[in-house]
Amino acid sequence: MDAEERIQAASKFLLQSPPGEINDVLNDVRNIISDDESLQAGVLPALREYNLAQFITADVPGHQHQSIVSEAARIPSGSADEDDEQSQDRYWDPRSRTSFRFDHLSLETSDPEHVEPDPESEPFRAALETASLTYLSSHYHDGVVSVFSTPGSASRYIIQIVANKYNPSNYWSGRWRSEYIVDTDAKQLTGKILLNVHYYEQGNVQLSTTHNVSLSLPPAIAASGGASAASKVLALIETEEGKYQSSLNDTYAEMGEKTFKGLRRALPMTRSKLDWDRVLGYKLGAELTNSKGVFGSA
């Protein structure tokens, strides 16, 4: 396998990294590449793809909150050189009206600049943001939400939510992501909820699930476009996410009682429970017999 093939293999590993474990994966693939300079240059596109898809959060320079780094947050490049990677890595936080450069390897932000929002879409975007922050504080631990308007449209908004829980001392990690598109002209709320959980104590078990959302907005919400309408949009999201969480709880309960039990026999082929004390006695006797044989030959 040549260097390019090793880089491609490393990139695939990175894209499959469980929540919060990409640095562990990156350190492991360093042993495969054995060339840090080539590794950083080669896997940067994979790191960018992973971070944007996973809604990685970043500290906003000069402010006391975090913002989501995603495709919706990316500022289109004004450079004529489409291969200029640096121009691809500038994002903005509508909440603080700040754009910043983001390093996908170190996850650090730099070079903040003030950005003026679109005056036509900003009032309802800000109302959605306020309602989203209220919802976040009520239902998420250490979650982050960002609300974006769509360039060139005063009727389409994107709400993104991410919450992470890393517990390496107990060998598990998890990430909840949800994204909603609010289209007041089409009177539609569409989106998806993505959940990833990794449990790896003496094994490797992963859960990856996606729930699609498609709801009609009441005419009153689409028409008013104020704080009241924003609160009603978040009420729809609250109901949908609550139902999905309840369905997951029901699924887990059913898996524990039925699915997992169906993967193994309740009793061995003899239809009688195994006497582990007797098995241990057999094992001890076998070891003693082997020991006698060794000492006797000496």
Rank of each mutant, 00 (worst) to 15 (best):
S121T: 06
Q40S: 10
I181H: 04
V29T: 13
E179S: 14
E85N: 06
V29Y: 04
R175H: 05
I221K: 00
T57A: 04
P18G: 04
V60T: 12
S38M: 07
Y180I: 08
E4Q: 14
E238Y: 09
V145P: 00
E201T: 04
F13I: 12
V69I: 10
P18T: 04
T289F: 12
W176K: 02
S96W: 02
F295S: 12
Q188I: 08
R6K: 15
N27R: 11
L128Q: 04
P268Q: 08
E108H: 08
L288Y: 09
A73E: 00
G20S: 10
Y135W: 15
L288A: 13
E122C: 03
A230K: 01
Q16P: 01
G42I: 06
L284V: 07
S67R: 00
T190Y: 02
T130F: 06
E254N: 15
Q206S: 13
D89K: 07
Y252F: 09
G262Q: 07
D24T: 14
A80V: 06
A220P: 02
D36F: 01
T57E: 03
S67M: 05
A127T: 06
A227E: 05
E257I: 01
G281P: 00
P18C: 06
L195M: 09
S214W: 01
E71T: 02
K283Y: 04
L195H: 06
I56H: 01
L107K: 05
L236H: 10
E122H: 09
F55K: 01
W176P: 00
P19K: 07
Y140I: 03
K192T: 02
Q202D: 14
L236P: 03
H104A: 03
S34N: 10
Q206N: 14
S79E: 07
F260C: 07
D89R: 14
K192M: 06
E49M: 11
G78R: 01
N212Y: 14
E85V: 14
S34C: 07
E5H: 13
P94M: 06
A131L: 10
P219M: 05
P151G: 14
A73K: 00
E201H: 11
P218Q: 13
A46K: 01
R6A: 14
S121A: 13
P117V: 06
L26Y: 10
M255I: 12
R30L: 02
Y199P: 00
G225Q: 12
G174W: 02
S77H: 05
S155R: 12
S38Q: 10
R125V: 02
D59A: 15
I193A: 02
G20K: 04
G191C: 08
L15M: 15
E85W: 06
S247Y: 06
L189C: 08
S291Q: 15
S87L: 01
Y252W: 05
A266C: 06
A298S: 09
Q188T: 15
